[in-house]
Design a binder for these strands. Structure first.
Lengths: 150, 150
DNA sequence: TATTGTTATACTCTATAACTATA
DNA sequence: TATAGTTATAGAGTATAACAATA
């Protein structure tokens, strides 16, 4: 114990801490890891949680719509949907002859409740790190950096 | 042309756009992709640029220090260093018998100048998306979300 | 011709275990 | 024993091309 830390040189990363892009990425990586850890007990990943929320908000949403909304490529969405379907959390309903809508099952709805509690906790933990007077600016700033119109 | 977009359902992702964690991640992904695109003409990735900047700010920095600073695992840093060394951008100088410091070569310093210009442009582009009155809060908010003390 | 869901596949990034050599 | 650098390798996540079915 009390091992000598040779990694003790101070202010090593100063030149990067002033860069918005760098700090944005580090913040994203750190908070996503925390979120994933909170979701792990439900055997869900962040992408699964996002899909469940999307399905609940927009029943009968199609693969293509989900992929476009979440910024995923269609091929990469397939195993996500298959995985959740195998667990009985979502179901497919044919919309027309070439596309099918995804809907939450009752079981999926039940799990979603737990997911929402975890998300609420996570969001609370995030915002609490920010000084109170800056909190109203968090989402507007992130949306702006994203370049998202709405 | 004018193909019917079936992905036209409005406000599909509303439930996610209110989540700090989600928007943080989307913003990070989007801006990192832009940065990578700007760096590509120099045949560098974001991690290469970060390493060059770190080496310039802290000559003789060791592998372990770099890895800890940039949030990388030591094994994953090896090919990064090897790649830049093969291109003559950095060199190794033995510090003691078991660790070696990394230093920029003259060629590395020359390339770093171009990197700095790209970073400046990128940072400018990022901050310009944010309404002027919110700009001073960007870095403090991101640092807070990261949970970074300084 | 264009779109939806899909398969196969490859590439990048990240993670772990374990080795060596030094102390 | 503990640390620095390394090797090998495995696992995510993400990317493209191309197919069948349908319009």
């Amino acid at each position: 114990m009390g091992a000598m830390k040779t990694t003790s040189r101070a202010s090593l990363q100063e030149p990067l801490l002033g860069l918005t892009g760098y700090v944005l990425r580090r913040a994203s990586i750190a908070t996503l890891a925390e979120f994933a850890e909170r979701l792990a007990p439900l055997d869900l990943r962040p992408v699964d949680a996002a899909l469940l929320i999307l399905l609940d908000a927009t029943p009968q949403v199609t693969h293509s719509e989900v992929a476009a909304t979440l910024g995923l490529r269609r091929p990469n969405l397939v195993p996500v949907v298959v995985g959740l379907q195998k667990r009985g959390l979502l179901d497919r309903k044919r919309v027309d002859f070439r596309s099918e809508g995804l809907v939450l099952t009752q079981q999926g709805g039940a799990l979603l409740k737990k997911v929402r509690r975890i998300i609420a906790l996570h969001e609370e933990q995030l915002i609490e790190r920010v000084p109170p007077e800056l909190r109203p600016m968090v989402l507007p700033i992130l949306m702006a950096l994203w370049g998202h119109s709405a």
